[in-house]
Each structure stands twice: as C-alpha cells, then as structure tokens.
Nucleic acid binder design. Structure first.
Lengths: 204, 204
DNA sequence: AAGTTGCCTTGACTTATGTCAATTCCAAGT
DNA sequence: ACTTGGAATTGACATAAGTCAAGGCAACTT
C-alpha cells in the first residue's frame, strides 16, 4: 500500500485548511485537537466536530467529488497531521474494491454522529448539553471512574461546539458547580461528581 | 440482480417501523411522504428527515450492523413502500464490490445533509429556517418560478422538522405573511413572493 | 344541517439564551 | 515580582421561543 502521506505540523490557532481552498485530500490527526468550523455569511460560527488523535477528517469530498474544502479546520492546540493526497486515495479505492465497503462503514458512523448532534441541539438545553459533553469525554478515557477532565479546548471553542455563547457556557458552568455536579480545579480541568448526576442529565 | 423487494402500503399516521424494532432492512419510498422521528426519554420529538418518493431510508444499520431500527418512521401521508431485506442487501454488497463505492457516495450525501441541518439549527432562527425550508421545496420542483407550494405535511410535523413548537411555527407564518414574503392560500398551500425575499433570508 | 373532532391560531405570560459593557482572572513575557 | 493582553466571568438588559389556556376553523359523522 503506497500511501504517500504528507506530514505537517501546525501550531495552535492555525488553519489546516479553510472553506473554499482547493481540496487536496483527507487528513489524519496524529497529535493534538482539530476543530471543524463553519462560518456563516453573517459571521456566526458553529463547530461541527472536534477531531481527536487517530481520527480522519475531510474525507467526504472524496466521495462527493468536491474540488474545495467545504468547511474550515482550525487547530485547537499544537497539532501534527498527515495529508492523504486525494489522487492516491481515489486510486486506492479503485484498485481495492473492498475499501468501498470500509469507507461506507466509516461514513455511516459519521451519519450516526451527526444525527446525535442534531438530537442534542434540539432535545436538550445548554446546561444539559454541557454536562453530556463532559460525560462523553469521561467515557472515552481509560480511568473513567476518576471523574477528572482536561478540556483541551478553550471555553470559547467549547461554546461554539455546544452551539451557545461563551457567556452562556460560563453561566452553565457555575450553575453546574453550584448544584454540586462538578468542581472547577482550573480553567481547563474539572472534577465531575458522578453521584450527583441523575439519569435525566444523561438522557434526552 | 435478485432484489426480493417486499411491497407494503401504509396509511397516514401509521409507523413503518419504530425505534427498537428488529432491523429488517432499508426501505424505498415509492409514493407519499415518510418522516424519520426520534422521541426523547422526556417525550420531546425531533424529525430528522422528510423522505421523498424515490428515496431510500434506514440504510445506515446495514453498515453499522445494528439489529434494531434506531428511530421511528411515520407516514405523513398515505404511502407505498418497498422493503429491501437486509440479508439480500448484504449479500448483494458482498458479491458486487463496486456497490460499496456507490453506498459510500450515498452515505456521504447523507452526511452533508445532516451537516446542513446542524448549521441550520444553530445559525438561523426559526422564522428564517421556515422560509429557507419553503425555498428548498421550491427548488426541487420543475416550475420553480411559480412560487406556489403544497406542504404535504401537517403544521405539527413541520414544526418538529424545524425544531420548534407548532405555536412558534404559526407565529412565524403570520410574520412572514405580514412582511409580504408569502401568502396563505389554504392551510396546506402557500404562494411565495420571491421578489420580497432578500439575500439575507437565503444565507446563513 | 347540526354536532363532533382534530388541527391550527391567538393571547398572555414565563424562561432560556443572546447581547453588550464592565470587570476580573490568569498566564506569558519582561 | 510586575506588567500586560487575551480569556473568562459577571451584571443588566433585550429578545426569541416555549408554555398553557382559550378560541376558531374546517372536515367528517350521524
């Protein structure tokens, strides 16, 4: 498999690509955290996805034959990335037909993810969304019982991810702290008190 | 191609399948309108997609190996449907490797759709969402210039689709009528005055 | 035709979240 | 240790949308 992956380092705040830039291919995030952001004509922003190390992003245009990246990708932290050149990927997909099936599996996962984001946005309110985000972050970790989270993303960006204003996020955090569901250790670190979290907080 | 499609007729309001029911396979909508609905634990509902004739739905579980339908499918009107049995579809996908590629294309379209729904929900407010929905319905039609729309969906369901309460939809409609952007001909039919619609209404 | 039923609409009110300005906090650099 | 600038918080207020209750309209039944 001659995957000619092109490596790149980006520091915090830098855009890996912006909306409308020529589509070079999907990226693999090796280290750090990347945010996929859409900016509206009126200047509002929404973060569609927080990419974790090991994940692939910007793979959809491969299948839709788009010549441009449809969104912006900004580094939330210093990052290390690899570009998988579009031509190579397309070639690979043609030669090995089984990869089509693999791709379909991956994309169906993305559909499910986005479906959940939609439900989250419409069925839960801001405070609950924040709590559920923190819980999800806990689940992904090995020592989930401990209940300590390092955000790894600025409050501003987290607000965009949750679809609220930074001020609202700030208020939601203090409310959760007052109600005993979490404790702020530092701006980036929280302790979550799982015992104080009811089923209603976890469910839609 | 031995597609053993199983035909079925459903009348308005009937569920084609409900969340948690054993996964039989994807469906093709031949006639009518089907709504894919998620119900939250607290009883709130959100419509994820309005399926139009000719479209396939509930295909994601094929690729995710789900044994149950993850959402509800309700007929908004009397419908005619065909079931594509899961076993047959899986078999077909194995024998013809090119289909994996086709499936990936279809799924990437669904990802883009859902991405747009997320942006719509977070970047536009209710009145604008309604107007944009109506405009989208116009575009899909041959005589788009005419500017007349038949909803084909109850106001209640449209509200769920837009992620608002029926009352809010009602108010949004009257506001759009007052501002001269549309005229209610009947409860189901509207005339859209394209000249009165600014760029801002169309953009995010 | 009158009555019934199920939507849709309207009105009055509440609540969540947005907005904008003023601080305060914190971390990086001098 | 001090300075400084960006980020986070807080307060006061505005507004979109939700809630609940009442009324109206239209289609169907008898």
């Amino acid at each position: 498999m001659s995957k000619a992956a092109l490596s790149k380092s980006c520091s915090k705040g830098v855009f890996v690509f912006i909306e409308g830039a020529p589509y070079l291919g999907p990226w693999v995030l090796r280290k750090g955290s990347v945010l996929l952001v859409k900016t509206s004509a009126s200047g509002k922003e929404q973060i569609l996805r927080q990419v974790e190390p090991g994940e692939v992003f910007a793979e959809v245009p491969i299948f839709r034959d788009l010549a441009w990246y449809p969104i912006n990708a900004r580094c939330a932290t210093d990052c290390e990335l690899s570009l998988l050149p579009a031509a190579d990927v397309r070639c690979l997909l043609k030669t090995d037909p089984k990869l089509g099936w693999t791709a379909a599996r991956a994309l169906s996962g993305r559909v499910a993810e986005f479906r959940d984001v939609i439900l989250e946005l419409t069925l839960a309110e801001a405070k609950q969304r924040l709590l559920r985000y923190l819980l999800r972050r806990l689940e992904g970790r090995p020592n989930a019982a401990l209940g300590v989270i390092r955000l790894g993303i600025s409050h501003q960006d987290l607000a965009l991810l949750l679809g609220v204003r930074p001020e609202s996020l700030s208020r939601a955090l203090t409310e959760l702290e007052v109600s005993g569901k979490l404790k702020r250790i530092s701006r980036q670190t929280f302790q979550i008190f799982l015992k104080q979290i009811s089923l209603k907080d976890r469910e839609w």
